[in-house]
Design a protein around this nucleic acid. Sequence first.
DNA 1: CGTATTAGATAGCTACGCTATCCATAAGTC
DNA 2: GACTTATGGATAGCGTAGCTATCTAATACG
Lengths: 217, 217
Amino acid sequence: MRMAELSRESGVPVATIKFYLREGLLPPGERTSPNQARYSQAHVRRLRLIRAMLDVGGLSLAQVTRVLAAVDSDELGQHDIFGVAQETVTQPGLDPDDDSESANAARERVRKLIADHGWLVPLDSPVVGALAKVVATIAELEPVLLEQIDDRADLIGRIADLDVSLLDGKSLEQQVEIVVAGTVLGDALMSAMRRVAQIDRSARRFGYSGDKASKHR
Amino acid sequence: MRMAELSRESGVPVATIKFYLREGLLPPGERTSPNQARYSQAHVRRLRLIRAMLDVGGLSLAQVTRVLAAVDSDELGQHDIFGVAQETVTQPGLDPDDDSESANAARERVRKLIADHGWLVPLDSPVVGALAKVVATIAELEPVLLEQIDDRADLIGRIADLDVSLLDGKSLEQQVEIVVAGTVLGDALMSAMRRVAQIDRSARRFGYSGDKASKHR
DNA sequence: CGTATTAGATAGCTACGCTATCCATAAGTC
DNA sequence: GACTTATGGATAGCGTAGCTATCTAATACG
């Protein structure tokens, strides 16, 4: 497959593909002569993955770069797969040097949450720091949201069960792909479904009107 | 409170506050003379809300602007609250003119999902379109993720129950604030908790090692 | 009265994610 | 083999987002 076809297949403009090649997001094609190359189905798939992470997952190019680098390096152990995918996606959490009252309160709340649920997670991991930051933000803005955090954690735990069960009987290579997609696109899927479900619950509680008139103009 | 103090209280630089004022994100202060103004605690809170939506929620300035406009307009009915918050946050979904096989398959899958769960949601609403887009993307990239979508939908539905139950006994004004924060920050909270829970489940399944040595370098 | 702030206007800046142009070589076409 | 088209690679530029900096005239404060 040559450049034009790769572009057509993937829906990504040629100039953009060249840009991704320069940035190392897309591996170079197989050389057929000093300055010609041939691309494969793997390139199409890689392009689709890039676009999915950018458009649907909402990642930055830099994050996509890191995720792909992790995918390509094959020195991952079973247990690290999630960590690697997550750490490249997780945004900076609570500053560890932040010793303010609210920061400590948030950290404590998260510590207790993890302990209460018996979660086996190092407290100094980036994901925990990120969670602490979210909790701190919510605590000072709309603390009611934290009232049922334990119930939420139970449900989320069961979602995580589903996530992990997906890996059953898969090769390590497949697992990497599933975890990456599951981490990035999984967030989008959960958010999108939650919104739909909220509309349903809200309609049941406050009354459903199928016509547009009731919608905000 | 004058500008300098507002800046100190909120942690937002003066230049940035002025920028937000220009953009209409922050309402003008109360005039004390033709070119002086005084700010209140409400301004501090508003600033914190803006920063939370930008930094934690990951919204764009334009989205924040729309959310705030909706918050400020008080012509919302009970049932519309979710819709308004969501529609300003929900990114463009599947193009309705897209008649490709994959797009139709995704739409059908979503339609069935909604029907199976008895959700009361207009199929042409933006949130459903957004969900269809996510489903379409996952379907062509990592379709295994869709295998347990019904189980996920059940759990998400129960999360939505929690979301809606938060509004019990709250004034309409409070409800608006809760829904806005719950929509934007709630996504961040769920994602962060899910990552932590995934680490736990993964550790249980594949073995936990508390030391850093097992982590990706 | 003098120094420090302020509101408001305008201009500039950095990062991101492309997009466009150029050129020399190679491929496809007759 | 001549000729048109496509390609790889390099370099430059562009549009948007989200601030940041500077300036000015008016006000506040001690």
